[in-house]
């Protein structure tokens, strides 16, 4: 990129402008700045992981060399944390699967269907995401009490679903918009029903979009702290809520907190690494076409 800029300037067609930052400084300055930024951003993560591996007596030691131990993780395993962790997995997975099952066909319908006020329907779906979540707390809490959904996994799934669904619909619609209609028409002539067309032609082509959407959807539910805190107590409490439980009258259990934090972070990091290629492609496609 840096090599292209001077040639564009010598071409003489571009209006005269001040040379950009990249042109006035050697490349390594930018590289160094990037490195510093990356370290700054990643520092808390590395710090958290190393704390989780330190022995109890030396949790906040500054020595870089120490004997790593899994005793914090072992302590977690004996408590209630595994139960909360499973709650998190179940609620997030169920919400993601349901949101995809309901949202993907909805996005497809909004992309392809020719019906009155299609644009308005899309807008109203987005509107559900505009109010701050806090605004829903009290109504949700009261209705969940009435419906006996308080402190249940199903209740959590329902709440996550309401937020994920809008996300899925709005993320998937541009992907479907980008698939040429002629492909579906060709499939219709080849003998497909509407559903066969959708399943054999449209959906495989929207694959990267599906992966990106599912991951973002999962991460959103997985990272939720607020609703889990309000709407659960003991039976359905999720991992992020359980971490707060380690702050007690008798003291703060830093070791277990760090270990639990690391465990909660892992699925998100792994997912993101695995689907990184799709994620970038997916987000870029969505942003340009949308």
């Amino acid at each position: 990129m840096a090599a292209e800029i001077p040639s564009a300037r010598t071409a003489g067609t571009a209006p005269v402008r001040r040379p950009g930052w990249r042109e006035r400084h050697p490349l390594w300055v930018g590289d160094l700045a990037t490195l510093v930024l990356v370290l700054l951003v990643l520092f808390p993560f590395f710090w958290l992981i190393q704390v989780s591996l330190r022995p109890k007596e030396d949790l906040f030691g500054t020595a870089l060399l120490f004997t790593p131990t899994l005793e914090n993780y072992a302590a977690l395993w004996k408590g209630n944390f595994p139960f909360s962790f499973i709650n998190s997995i179940v609620a997030s997975t169920a919400a993601t699967v349901l949101a995809m099952l309901l949202g993907v066909p909805a996005a497809y319908a909004l992309s392809r269907g020719r019906f009155r006020s299609g644009g308005q329907i899309s807008l109203w779906i987005l509107v559900t995401r505009m109010a701050p979540p806090v605004a829903f707390t009290i109504p949700l809490f009261i209705s969940f009490r009435w419906l006996d959904l308080h402190d249940t996994r199903i209740g959590l799934v329902i709440v996550y679903l309401t937020f994920s669904l809008a996300l899925v619909i709005w993320m998937m619609k541009p992907f479907f918009d980008a698939i040429p209609r002629e492909l579906e028409e060709a499939a219709a002539i080849d003998g497909c029903t509407t559903w066969q067309t959708f399943l054999t032609v449209t959906l495989p082509l929207a694959g990267p979009g599906l992966a990106a959407t599912a991951v973002i959807c999962f991460i959103q539910s997985w990272n939720d702290f607020f609703f889990a805190l309000i709407l659960t107590r003991t039976q359905a409490s999720t991992a992020p809520v359980a971490i707060v439980g380690f702050i007690q009258y008798v003291g703060w259990e830093w070791g277990r907190m760090a270990a639990a934090g690391t465990l909660v972070m892992m699925p998100v990091v792994l997912f993101s690494i695995f689907v990184r290629k799709y994620l970038v492609k997916g987000l870029a496609a969505g942003s340009i076409k949308g």
Binding site: P180, E182, L183, A187, P204
Partner: peptide, 9 residues
């Protein structure tokens, strides 16, 4: 079709 509409996958 004019743009062939071959299934890319």
């Amino acid at each position: 079709f004019q743009n062939y509409a071959l299934y890319p996958h």
